[in-house]
């Protein structure tokens, strides 16, 4: 089982998990982390370089739809800084309805994020693509990405016993994507709203991504 830890801390949290450093998550809790994409708190991509050179094969949580800068220079700097992988977090995957249409005009869309990650792969980076729906998962696969993270969505709360319907729908979604492309690793984002009632093994995922809050 693969295990990643998503955090706003530049330091590796656990020795047993691959660290994803996303600076804009610093100080947020698990639910607020879902909204990091629409919190103009700092320059996330610039902050990735504020720390000492990264060691231990960390991933960078990248705002891939940054309208400024060029991907080539940015990716070169990431590599020089020691990052071995990139992930599309903060992400546009949770936008819906009017917000989704408005942000797409910028453009900030999951498809753009997957294209950016595919470009990073061509530069030698590993990639980890967050997605929330079957449509987004298929778009990520079509872009050539092979390591995906299923985000269960904005979950109000799961209480009162095992959420069987949710488990069944997540499992079904993962199986459909595996049916499309056999050689793919699909992980589960073990959202704080799930209260640990749904874990990667429950839905047949290849691993998990856990959010670690930092004060």
């Amino acid at each position: 089982m693969k295990h990643f830890e998503l955090s706003g801390s530049p330091n590796q949290i656990s020795e047993h998990a691959t660290h994803i450093y996303c600076p804009t998550l610093h100080g947020l809790n698990g639910r607020q982390a879902d909204l990091a994409m629409v919190m103009p708190r700092l320059d996330n991509n610039r902050a990735l370089f504020d720390t000492r050179t990264t060691e231990g094969g960390s991933y960078a949580g990248v705002l891939t739809c940054d309208p400024f800068g060029t991907a080539d220079n940015f990716l070169r700097r990431l590599a020089d800084h020691g990052y071995v992988g990139v992930s599309n977090w903060p992400s546009a995957i949770l936008f819906q309805g009017h917000t989704k249409r408005m942000m797409a005009s910028m453009p900030a869309t999951p498809e753009l994020e997957y294209a950016w990650l595919a470009g990073a792969q061509r530069h030698g980076f590993q990639s980890l693509a967050f997605f929330r729906s079957l449509e987004q998962g298929r778009a990520a696969l079509s872009a050539g990405l092979q390591q995906l993270v299923l985000h269960p969505g904005l979950i109000p709360q799961t209480t009162g016993g095992p959420p069987d319907l949710l488990i069944a729908s997540l499992r079904d979604l993962i199986e459909k994507l595996r049916h499309q492309v056999g050689d793919v690793d699909i992980l589960l984002y073990e959202h704080v709203g799930l209260n640990e009632a749904v874990q990667a093994t429950d839905v047949g995922a290849d691993g998990a991504v856990t959010f670690i809050a930092t004060p």
């Binding site: 103009p40 320059d43 940054d66 309208p67």
Partner: peptide, 23 residues
């Protein structure tokens, strides 16, 4: 406005939602 700085650089006003700069 935060959006004003980004518009001057050619980005959409909507970019002011993103973690691009401290608002």
């Amino acid at each position: 406005l935060n959006a004003g700085r980004l518009r001057m650089r050619g980005a959409s006003s909507l970019a002011s939602y993103l973690p691009l700069r401290p608002a």
